[in-house]
Write a protein that binds this DNA or RNA. Structure first.
Lengths: 91, 91
DNA sequence: GTTGGCGATGTCGATCTTGATCATCGGCGG
DNA sequence: CCGCCGATGATCAAGATCGACATCGCCAAC
């Protein structure tokens, strides 16, 4: 499923041009990105939670050299599935 | 940031009632949930990717009993931040 | 059709997950 | 707008998983 599919679903419920639907999807992802980049936690009950977390790891591995490489970054985004998404069955 | 904030952002760009904005947000999250529950990968370039993954782990620990607890589940939802979200700086 | 983000690969260690319970807060009815 | 209901967070431990690096192919986005 890609952006177009989401926009498509939106168009079915709220009649509008594909361009508009795409803009809506884009706007929302943009807002989410912005919020996360500002360190805000995004919580949607029943769906999940996006949370910026500090990265404490400090080591990685370079495939070619095989040498330990430092992981300079200190943050990552974690998504915690909500109740509804945890209902996933093994299929 | 919670659902209302997202709806609020949407209202600013696409004038509509709060109820409508909330419905839109709800609809989209609903579609995403549905797609993930069906095992579909959701990819939004520049934002991130939601991917249902099989869980192979099989053990955990119960605080109270202190006993090893089986982790029967076999799936989880993983979110991989896209390029834009990986640009997070330590702040 | 073109551009460029994303997946996969291999290694090693830190991180995450799972379960139960109470408190807190999001969601929603009155 | 206030209040209730129910979902989420934290906690403990053990073990599996993820992440970063570099590069090429593939597919999303335009």
């Amino acid at each position: 499923m890609i952006k177009i599919d989401i926009a498509n679903a939106l168009m079915k419920v709220y009649p509008c041009s594909r361009a508009t639907a795409l803009q809506v999807v884009d706007l929302l992802t943009e807002r989410l990105k912005d919020a996360l980049l500002n360190g805000h936690r995004i919580e949607i009950r029943g769906f999940g939670v996006f949370e910026p977390r500090p990265r404490k790891r400090g080591m990685g591995r370079n495939i070619k050299t095989g040498a330990s490489v430092q992981i300079p970054k200190g943050k990552s985004i974690r998504f915690k599935p909500g109740k509804d998404l945890r209902a996933i069955e093994v299929k």
